[in-house]
Design a protein around this nucleic acid. Sequence first.
DNA 1: GCGTGACGTCGAAGCGCTTCGACGGGGGAA
DNA 2: TTCCCCCGTCGAAGCGCTTCGACGTCACGC
Lengths: 335, 335
Amino acid sequence: MVKITDVARHAGVSPSTVSYALSGKRPISEETRQRIEDSIRELGYRPHAGARALASSRSNVLALVVPLRTGIHVPVVMQFAVSVVTAARRHDHDVLLLTQEEGEDGLRRVADTALVDALIVMDVQLHDRRLPLLRALDRPSVLIGFPAEPAGLTCIDLDFKAAGELCVEHLAGLGHRVIGLVGSPPEVYVRETGFAQRVVQGFTAAADRNGLSSSVHPCEAAPAAARQVAEQLLRERPALTGVVVHNEPVLEPLIDAFESLGLRVPGDLSVTAICPDEVAEQTRVPVTSIAIPTAEVGTGAVELLMRKLGGATAVPEATLLSPRLTVRGSTMPRP
Amino acid sequence: MVKITDVARHAGVSPSTVSYALSGKRPISEETRQRIEDSIRELGYRPHAGARALASSRSNVLALVVPLRTGIHVPVVMQFAVSVVTAARRHDHDVLLLTQEEGEDGLRRVADTALVDALIVMDVQLHDRRLPLLRALDRPSVLIGFPAEPAGLTCIDLDFKAAGELCVEHLAGLGHRVIGLVGSPPEVYVRETGFAQRVVQGFTAAADRNGLSSSVHPCEAAPAAARQVAEQLLRERPALTGVVVHNEPVLEPLIDAFESLGLRVPGDLSVTAICPDEVAEQTRVPVTSIAIPTAEVGTGAVELLMRKLGGATAVPEATLLSPRLTVRGSTMPRP
DNA sequence: GCGTGACGTCGAAGCGCTTCGACGGGGGAA
DNA sequence: TTCCCCCGTCGAAGCGCTTCGACGTCACGC
């Protein structure tokens, strides 16, 4: 193994000079820097991560806690993970993968052993058990998602309330008067995952504001459940012309169900969804939708952490990303 | 931060004794060990990961390289990742997440900086560019998947050839004489991903062996493509009564297409698939299938690495997991 | 009764890097 | 010219842990 003293000897300087040339923490003459860089290249030097971590008390590793539970859309989780890793690399950091199963002990372990400098936690629930721990930990963290009491924590996510509103505004603007929300599985509401409830809030608020008649229907992630909800909607609200779907796996089956019940989309029924673009594009009728901006959220989370690690004083506690609605073929003016 | 010297002082022993008590590398009297453990608990001591890595030249971290490409089923990747993390934790290791995008440089970086002790690489292609590097690296690695030339590497995966064969044997045993394989998208074969080709090999070999008439049809991962393939199959092979599907997203649309073309599953057409159980179970007719044993593969990969890290001499180069076929409602004897 | 070895523990020497204080030399200000 | 300060570099002191060799003690065998 080639170490910093080897490089120093080869370049005719002291080890500390090599270190400063690498970190830029002190000025080094252009000429010396060049010589050092040449030596590094020639010898194939790589600083030892452990030694660096010990001496600098910085590991340059971030922890990412990913959820494992039912009712969450796996590809979206993966997208978050990838964007976090990519963003972290841009800041010369790596990412340690933790499963939610590890729970609070896992968080404490990687933080207390100084394995990681900071943490990113996904799938935060309204009353998440990890919150007190995250507040107490000596390393900074960022949550993807909003708990009920975000004070003292840094959170980032799509503004799901605004997303719910935006869907309604879109339908209202097209003249629809009776609309329904087909939501996530009941257990998602039960365990109080913030974003699902916030969609409902936005949906309801915007419907009221616009004087629309609206109703909300949780739905299991199965085709049969979709069919049931479709039938129920038509039975209870025959004047229905607009639907908002917040439940990825059910989007396609739901449209199928409506069509087989005699409603054409978008001719008789306009459909919008909150879901990844791939899901919205792969249905038989491409669906007007609001995507979860996984790349921005992941990148944003990392940027926030970097600012905190950099000692920034005022990092915003709440970062809500504005929803963007992409119009596709599934919505049209009320007939 | 509480360190080992604090524990030592508190327990009335020397730091080295604490270290040995923790690692078990030298005998420590029961009484002293107890005292040390008490002190550790009382003080809340956690060994510093960086210091440990520096002194022992072991980071207790594994790298996991996950694929990002089109044509691979994301939930399966996630399952691998989770099982790797879980297995690694059982051996007191953590997992660093690398994206394939980082490529060879990323592998070299984490290995050369001693950030990780060993590497797990997923989605290995037949002529993977990373193979020479993995052979040359000074840390052990395990591949999930088999390249064309696996000599000198440790590989583990489902035996896809046997899986292809098993599907055919199952259909042949039910009396089917004319069968087809609906495969992965053409690009998967083009980039020479081993497992797809091996399914074809197994399928063809078993069909020949059993005197069946067979044909192979790559298929894009889109409903429209599925429809096309279904039409083509019926046109070209009117006597077809058995189909093997190796293409997750197309399974459901393909069955839909067959049914809308007048073929009942399994009445007129028996269907088997190689896909995750969730996919096989969520179709309208549950599909007889061979699952990719993600948990075993992930765990197996970690076990192999641990043996290599433990200095085991003879770790098997190739580990092929036998396929298991789960019979569901989509296959029946030929009418 | 004494050599032998295993047991349990200690002290010291690093592991490879960062960082702090110091120091010589070369301006710019006074 | 003198003083001061900044620039560029060096040396040394750790960071917190593991590990090697050494040492005292005790039991055992002959």
